[in-house]
């Protein structure tokens, strides 16, 4: 089996930018782009579930998340990057060339770029899984439409939560933002926008402890994080945006991870395994922006190119 020069696992802004640069350096990258799903863990990554991206430089009037990712993928393909639409199920980084498997299909690569990103956390409630598609949603842009004129809730306090809450006011009559603290970690502009929106109400110091409803969601049970007091919130829709976890299960025991599970990198995008580079949200819990992910993807492609020149 002839090994690929560069194999990229993951296809968000980091992976696709790495693919564009590696392809233009004639490294014929193969991108294992992930498996189709309705969660943030899919080809194109978290931006596939967003609407307007207003802060990606070069788009004066903003760009739709899925459109940005589709264009990035086409740009990488134009320079010869190839794609496999599936999820890598196993890697062996102790062997050279490195081994990557999709079930029983084996791939070999001299250099490896890991850009598997992060996926949205769910609440972890028993009722949650059963009610997905019946009031509980993982995709505000897909499902907001079905809650026209209804009262719904968004759980979380970061940029994603506020963006979803603001977006959902286009449909819902009222959006309650449930947050476990009394202040938000979202950016100033998102906070100002949400606070100025008359349809958004805030439930501070509350966490969701149970969901009501047999066939469809009929309400959420909130618990006050200070007093422990419980209350009912009458909502027919619930959108969860409480943060992310890095997709690093595949690399446990093979790459150095920090205590939150993110891949440890540096200098540049180097990991602790020579020839393996990591970029994007899988190694970044600080910035987590499309543009920083893309920037680190470019760095990874340059790092792998120089590493290949020096070692092969």
């Amino acid at each position: 089996m002839t090994p690929h020069d560069v194999l990229i696992i993951g296809s968000g802004p980091a992976g696709l930018t790495a693919a564009i640069y590696a392809a233009r350096a004639n490294l014929n990258p193969l991108v294992i782009e992930g498996e189709i799903s309705s969660t943030s863990d899919q080809p194109g990554g978290q931006l596939m579930l967003t609407t307007e991206v207003e802060n990606f430089p070069g788009f004066e009037h903003g760009v739709q998340g899925p459109e940005l990712m589709t264009t990035m993928r086409a740009q990488a393909a134009r320079f010869g990057a190839e794609f496999v639409t599936a999820k890598a199920t196993r890697v062996d980084l102790s062997d050279r060339p490195f081994g990557v498997w999709i079930e029983n299909d084996e791939y070999r690569a001299k250099g490896l770029i890991v850009s598997t990103g992060a996926r949205s956390l769910m609440l972890g409630l028993e009722e949650e899984r059963r009610l997905i598609g019946h009031g509980v949603s993982t995709c505000a842009t897909c499902d907001g439409f079905f809650f026209r004129g209804q009262e719904i809730a968004v759980v979380g306090g970061g940029d994603s939560a506020l963006e979803e809450a603001t977006f959902l006011t286009k449909f819902a009559s009222k959006v309650t933002l449930v947050h476990r603290r009394d202040q938000l970690r979202a950016s100033k502009i998102m906070q100002d926008r949400a606070r100025a929106n008359p349809k958004i109400e805030f439930a501070w110091n509350k966490r969701v402890v149970n969901l009501n409803g047999t066939d469809n969601l009929q309400g959420a049970v909130l618990e006050d994080t200070i007093t422990g007091e419980q209350s009912d919130l009458d909502v027919t829709g619930l959108f969860v945006a409480i943060g992310h976890v890095p997709n690093t299960d595949l690399f446990k025991g093979q790459l150095a991870l920090d205590d939150q599970g993110y891949i440890v990198t540096g200098p540049g995008t180097r990991t602790d395994v020579d020839g393996v580079f990591a970029c994007g949200d899988v190694q970044d819990h600080t910035y987590r922006q499309a543009i920083t992910a893309a920037g680190s993807g470019c760095m990874a492609a340059i790092d792998v190119e120089r590493w290949l020149e020096a070692h092969h």
């Binding site: 189709i36 799903s37 194109g44 899925p66 995709c139 842009t141 439409f145």
Partner: peptide, 14 residues
């Protein structure tokens, strides 16, 4: 499906 649904577009070719 609907026009504004990203995952719907992804399964269309499937």
């Amino acid at each position: 499906w609907a026009e504004w649904c990203g995952p719907c577009k992804m399964i269309a070719p499937v």
